[in-house]
Design a protein around this nucleic acid. Structure first.
Length: 558
RNA sequence: UGACCCAUGGUGUAAUUGGUAACACACCGGUUUUUGGUACCGACAUUCAAGGUUCGAGUCCUUGUGGGUCAACCA
């Protein structure tokens, strides 16, 4: 008797399972991730990667990485390398070598010739404007180009001349001959080849004509034997053309399926607008920790696994969506809670003197590194007469004393992993700012061997003054003040920039174990949040990025 | 005066394919806690509308309504 509950499938998984059941392509599953190497990958790509590679993985198939590099003027190998790095970092492996649409240029050219020979493509001498003119509008049918009825021989000759570089850019195009009155604009004799005397990042100057997306993508899928070509909803209108090309060329029948792209609140994914953030100096670079790029999130400290579980939780469907960024942050915190070692760092330090603690004495205390993971062991930490605590962990006169679990005059608190101390007096400067707090400690209240019987109001993190390490901490907030900054008509996303998205703290005090930290290492700063060592760090100065702050009910109540 | 896609709590995704709305996040309340973290418990929707088919509809049909996409020699 099977009691297993049937796992619910998204609509793509259902299609794939149906196909496997029908033994389509002998049950083979081959997907592909087809980025254009003209920009950096962002959170939206992460979703596509998880779907493309994830489906393949789930059904024992494989996923090709294919660069859709059919427009030499915008593409570059720099992006190729960055994209590969991001995919690997997310934890996916593509099938064999990376593929390139440009590898198929000879084959694609032959496909075009075949179409001409079948009387299904023609060379059009019209200008871009004229072509647009005759194309009609979504509500008005288009009409035939005067060049539509050229003979096969003439088309063949002209197309070859196009290839040979006999014409300047824009002089002529090759168009598929379909139906100028089709309700789907893409079927109104789409341009499939254009002249561009440009150097391609891979094929150099071998070609001066380049196929359009619609004449390259589907055929590339077909050449590679892709079984399920998954893309976002905006390509749904391309599907009839995708199928038309495959049918007319009589090649392997790859199938395209569309799913909704993922939108995340307070993030933008338009390459153009992302670029603007960099060029306008809103952020420092493509991998600025505030950027929704994969490289930005990596630098911010988001674990790749968190991104994957996030995409997983978001699911796959066909409706427009706006995912609450708090789900992403939840996934990040959930992952980090299990994996990040705990350390203590005081961000806004105020000095505490323990008046009854022996002068000059240092104790080595042992602290657990991660209560969620025993295998992470423990470390020792120096304790002494003078320590730093967080400024807001002391209140001279707490507003609601019963609810305040921190230090104050005549209040007892436990120093994490150390002793219980009691607030006594404090010193203020001329501005009323507290500069020093005097406490006494209970010698028999040592953590783990507490026989004092003293009740502590709460637990504070701390750092020993003589052993403290100065570090810089960079706190980030969302880049925009509006959840959908690019969805307001007549307004630019830059109108919603959060000018307080970066807060630099240059004099935080960290426990000495952090001296051993390496770039990229992630930690939980107890009671504060999760942080990682930034790439800007040097041996002289460790710089931490705040990946995400801890959930804080107390801050919320206030 | 078009074609195509979509419609389930604040958000996102489910619902054994026609059998009486589930899970996660967020929010609110509580328990535990040497992190105001974690963990745990509780509260939170009769599925866009109106008809129809049916013993029975979130699932099927019809008509509306609302949202999205399409007029680059970009992908």
């Amino acid at each position: 008797m099977s009691t297993e509950t049937k796992e619910s499938l998204n609509f793509i998984e259902q299609i794939v399972e149906d196909d496997i059941e029908k033994n389509m392509h002998d049950g083979r599953v081959l997907t592909r991730f087809p980025p254009e190497p003209n920009g950096y990958l962002h959170i939206g790509h992460a979703k596509a990667i998880c779907v493309d590679f994830g489906i393949a993985q789930k059904y024992g198939g494989a996923c090709n990485l294919r660069f859709d590099d059919t427009n030499p003027v915008t593409e570059d190998t720099e992006y190729v390398e960055a994209i590969k790095k991001d995919i690997k970092w997310l934890g996916f492996d593509w099938n064999g070598e990376a593929q390139y649409a440009s590898n198929y240029f000879p084959q694609l050219y032959a496909f075009a010739v075949k179409l001409i020979e079948k009387g299904l493509a023609y060379v059009d001498d019209s200008s871009a404007e004229q072509i647009a003119e005759l194309k009609g509008t979504p509500t008005k049918p288009g009409s035939d180009s005067p060049f539509r009825s050229r003979s096969v021989a003439e088309n063949l000759e002209l197309f070859e001349k196009m290839k040979n570089g006999d014409f300047p850019d824009g002089a002529r195009v090759l168009r598929a001959k379909i139906d100028m009155t089709a309700p789907n604009m893409l079927m109104r004799d789409p341009v499939i080849y254009r002249i561009k005397h440009a150097t391609h990042h891979r094929t150099g100057d071998d070609w001066c004509i380049y196929p359009m997306y619609d004449f390259a993508h589907g055929q590339s899928d077909s050449i590679e034997g892709i079984t399920h070509s998954l893309c976002s909803l905006e390509f749904i209108h391309h599907r009839p053309l995708y199928n038309w090309c495959i049918e007319q060329l009589e090649i392997f029948p790859s199938q395209q399926y569309e799913f909704a792209r993922m939108n995340v609140s307070y993030m933008i994914t338009s390459k153009r607008r992302l670029l603007k953030l960099v060029t306008e100096g809103v952020v420092t670079s493509w991998d600025d920790p505030r950027m929704p790029t994969i490289s930005g999130m990596r630098r911010r400290g988001y674990p790749p696994m968190a991104l994957r579980t996030f995409c997983d939780k978001v699911g796959v469907a066909k409706r427009e969506n706006l995912i609450d960024i708090s789900l992403l942050e939840f996934c990040v915190k959930d992952e980090l809670n299990k994996t990040a070692p705990r350390v203590m760092t005081v961000i806004d330090p105020v000095k505490v003197v323990i008046t009854n603690y022996p002068e000059g004495q240092t104790e080595e205390l042992t602290l657990i590194n991660n209560p969620e993971d025993e295998t992470q062991g423990s470390r020792t930490l120096p304790f002494s007469k003078e320590i730093y605590i967080e400024r807001n962990d002391f209140r001279e006169d707490p507003p609601s004393p019963k609810k305040f679990y921190r230090l104050g005059p005549e209040r007892n608190v436990r120093l994490k992993g150390a002793y219980i101390i009691r607030g006594e007096t404090f010193i203020k400067d001329e501005n009323g700012l507290i500069t020093e707090i005097h406490c006494t400690y209970f010698p028999d209240s040592k953590s783990g061997e507490d026989t004092s019987g003293v009740k502590a109001k709460g637990v504070l993190h701390w750092v020993s003054v003589p052993h403290a390490v100065d570090v810089e901490v960079r706190e980030y907030d969302r880049l925009f003040t509006d959840p959908t900054p690019d969805a307001h008509e007549g307004k630019d996303s830059l109108d919603f920039i959060n000018h307080e998205s970066l807060n630099i703290i240059s004099n935080a005090k960290a426990e000495p174990s952090l001296l051993q930290a390496n770039i990229g290492d992630r930690f939980q700063f107890m009671r504060l949040g999760y942080y990682c060592v930034d790439t800007d760090s040097s041996p002289e100065k460790i710089i931490f990025n705040r990946t995400v702050a801890m959930r804080d009910k107390w801050a919320k109540k206030k």
